[in-house]
Design a binder for these strands. Structure first.
Length: 402
RNA sequence: GGGUAGGUACCGAAGCGGUCAAACGGGUCAGACUGUAAAUCUGAUGGCUUAAGCCUUCGGAGGUUCGAAUCCUCCCCUGCCCA
């Protein structure tokens, strides 16, 4: 019995491209007939230890495969991380040491299972050093012979860098080869990735064919744009929401995205049906603030549960709409009697230097006990009750003598 | 190996002997407004003291000069062209 189309549609929700859908349908049908789960590959580059919402887009698709009974094969690219994936980079990435990679891989796994089903029968975790470290130089040359320079340069990230006159090191060309070899070694049926991985993933197909394996089906997901609404979400750009962040942070950051980004986030980060998303993102039918609030709740709910989502939404409204103090006000103890405002700001980390602190005061961004201050030389008597120091909208804390 | 163009603050990019802490854009931060940490507008954006002042920055190391990001020498890194 081939799986009905509706199953495949649900599975492919939000995907950017499938190479090819017919092959996928056939492979799914064959798997179910043979009662053999598909091996679904996803490679992760542990060059940065934290998983953010952008990663969860593809992880979510992987989870849907798991839920249908297939096996997620997560490849920690510990070996490839020594090279650095050139994808989307204007510069060659730095290589990592083994210790860094190990630590990152560990964290990665912990965080990935916040989306993936950790059941060992549904999740297989491998490191590609397992097979890549055994390749001889001769093997490597043989692999390289399957690829041509022209195809390599077609790849848009190389193409752009090349045309822009930016450096490309030869070792970066090896990255797609290694990744393709991964697919052969784990006998992948399907490989998932962001659209920026299309080239790498398709190399896997070629290598598998060359090694007399059925070629993997490649499914790509759109790249999630980050908080700025322009660039792809990434740690290095700082426009991300990490899966381990607090409920309040997740909610607040979501509220800060530009309105035009909502539809994309609803589609890629929540399970809301398409019709509903359309209604939510139509300003005529739904107030944008309400839509965004809903988005924030959905996201927090996914990682912290419904109670936390509710709390975060309320806390946000209380703090930023009504201007109240945060529920859990951070308290700093200082062993000073009568410090100046500037010192206070530096002590609690609200300003990096005296000049910066002075600037903030001059700009009217600083208040003590909700009283805006204008004199940078002001001294503040500290008592046991302490004072409330506020800088801008978001930085606020209590300071007591102690 | 030869030729040639470059390396400037968080990023991009001007400046090419003093008026340069260094234009401009982005980012970030603050303020106003608001629908929110949206959008828009305004301002700030090396450090120390704030009045004037002082100190550290323009790939690295030396040098010329009263004075250099700007000139010279050597070195390191990168693009392009030729071989």
């Amino acid at each position: 019995m081939p799986p009905p189309d509706t199953t495949i549609d649900a599975l492919l929700r939000g995907t950017a491209a499938v190479y090819t859908r017919d092959e996928l349908a056939a492979r799914l049908a064959k798997a179910s007939a043979a009662r053999r789960p598909l091996r679904v590959k996803l490679g992760l580059d542990p060059s940065s230890p934290d998983i953010h919402l952008g990663h969860t887009v593809v992880l979510g698709l992987m989870r849907r495969f798991q839920d249908l009974g297939h096996v997620a094969v997560l490849i920690i690219g510990d070996y490839t991380a020594r090279i650095g994936d050139p994808t989307g980079k204007s510069k060659t990435r730095p290589m990592l040491t083994e210790q860094e990679i190990d630590a990152n891989a560990q964290t990665y796994l912990e965080q990935a299972t916040r989306v993936l089903d950790p059941d060992p029968s549904r999740l297989e975790v491998r490191r590609n050093s397992e097979w890549l470290s055994k390749l001889t130089f001769a093997d490597t040359i043989r692999l390289a012979s399957h690829m041509t320079v022209a195809r390599m340069l077609e790849r848009d990230t190389f193409d752009k860098r090349y045309k822009a006159g930016q450096p490309i090191s030869v070792h970066e060309f090896l990255y797609p080869l290694m990744q393709g070899w991964d697919s052969v070694c784990i006998r992948a049926d399907v490989e998932l990735g962001g659209t920026d991985q299309t080239f790498n993933n398709l190399v896997g197909r070629d290598f598998q064919i060359a090694n007399e394996q059925p070629p993997q089906i490649v499914i790509t997901m759109p790249i999630l744009r980050g908080l700025d609404g322009q660039e792809k979400m990434s740690k290095s750009l700082g426009n991300y929401i990490g899966v381990t962040e607090s409920a309040d942070e997740m909610f607040g950051k979501t509220m800060s995205i530009p309105d035009h980004l909502m539809a994309e986030w609803f589609t890629l980060c929540t399970t809301a049906p398409a019709g509903e998303i359309e209604a939510l993102c139509d300003a005529q039918r739904t107030h944008p603030r309400q839509a965004k609030e809903r988005l924030g709740r959905e996201i927090v709910n996914r990682f912290h549960g419904p109670e936390a989502a509710e709390r975060a939404a309320q806390e946000f409204a209380s703090r930023f709409r009504e201007g109240n103090l945060p529920a859990d006000l951070e308290t700093h103890r200082l062993a000073l009697e009568c410090p100046g405002v500037l010192d206070l700001m530096r002590e609690v980390g609200f300003a990096a230097s005296n000049s910066e602190a002075r600037r903030l005061v001059a700009q009217g961004g600083v208040s003590i006990d909700e009283q805006k201050i204008s004199d940078p030389m002001l001294t503040v008597p500290l008592s046991a009750d302490g004072i409330i120091l506020r800088v801008g909208k978001r930085r606020i804390c209590r300071i007591v003598r102690g």
